[in-house]
Design a protein around this nucleic acid. Structure first.
Lengths: 145, 145
DNA sequence: CACATTGTAACTTATTCAGTTCCATTGAAG
DNA sequence: CTTCAATGGAACTGAATAAGTTACAATGTG
């Protein structure tokens, strides 16, 4: 399979919040849902993860409750978002145990472990180079056509 | 989610075949299944993909039917295996359509497309640097303890 | 106190993956 | 030319996971 669409949704949310950030207000989840095209409850689940990671701030009760960015868009990297939203390792190991009395079956998992960690690291390094600020600029460019 | 365990299984298969490669015979799928710890039918599905990609050779009927490597282990990169077995893009887009009348909703997908492609490319570049030969060496090192 | 909004739990639905069973097909060996 | 060990593929099951929905208690501003 692939990296969950939850990650795409999280990036959409943050890009949207960044676009409206100059207003400096809290935006409710159904307002965001209108742009993303999915349910406010689903968004709140993701927003909760982003809040735990310190990427957004939440205002609970009263009128004017909702969400806003906790930092400037340029200071939120796509890696920050990845680590906030994706908790599972990128590569899956065997579902059923390989045969430990076979020398390959015994040694393959630690061998893969090392390669998998390095490869995941390469991906994360690339994600660290891009920010929500970049996404806003790029989305506006494409959105205006 | 993550990259399917099918990829791990494919690497296990090829590492196993590489380990026995000097014998220069064809190995049946249930012999391989004994090391991997999963069903021969599942393995044959994966072996079929590897054969299509030209990484293994198959011998159909008769005694001595089975599978063997089509190239030397050092000439099969982990990227070759990835492209043989994983067909879907690494990142998932939205499941439901973002709002096209919102400027962010309209521009976000092409913006993400570019970043996603670049990031997937970074992962593949790392996978291209490692070969089945490396995996055999590393697995033997760990397997001997 | 009123009320807009969050937080969370429980449920449904769809999808995907791994694994299984079954049988027709293949082709080397005797 | 028969035998038989093996592949190839279809059809099915079971389990896990994701996205989406409904419902309601908790929050805290005004």
């Amino acid at each position: 399979m692939a990296i969950v669409s939850r990650y795409t949704i999280a990036l959409h949310i943050l890009t949207w919040l960044a676009y409206w950030a100059e207003k400096d207000e809290f935006f409710p989840s159904d307002r965001i849902a209108n742009s993303v095209g999915t349910s406010p409850v689903f968004l709140r689940r993701i927003l909760g993860q982003l809040a735990k990671a310190g990427l957004v701030l939440v205002q609970h009760g009263g009128t004017g409750a909702g969400w806003k960015l906790a930092r400037r868009p340029e200071d939120i990297s796509l890696l920050d978002v990845y680590e906030a939203v994706v908790q599972t390792p990128l590569f899956e190991m065997h579902h059923s145990q390989p045969n430990p009395s076979c020398i390959i079956g015994h040694g393959i998992q630690p061998a893969l472990q090392r390669v998998y960690e390095d490869s995941e690291e390469a991906l994360k390094l690339r994600l660290a180079q891009e920010s929500i600020g970049d996404l806003v600029a790029s989305a506006l460019e494409h959105g205006k056509l």
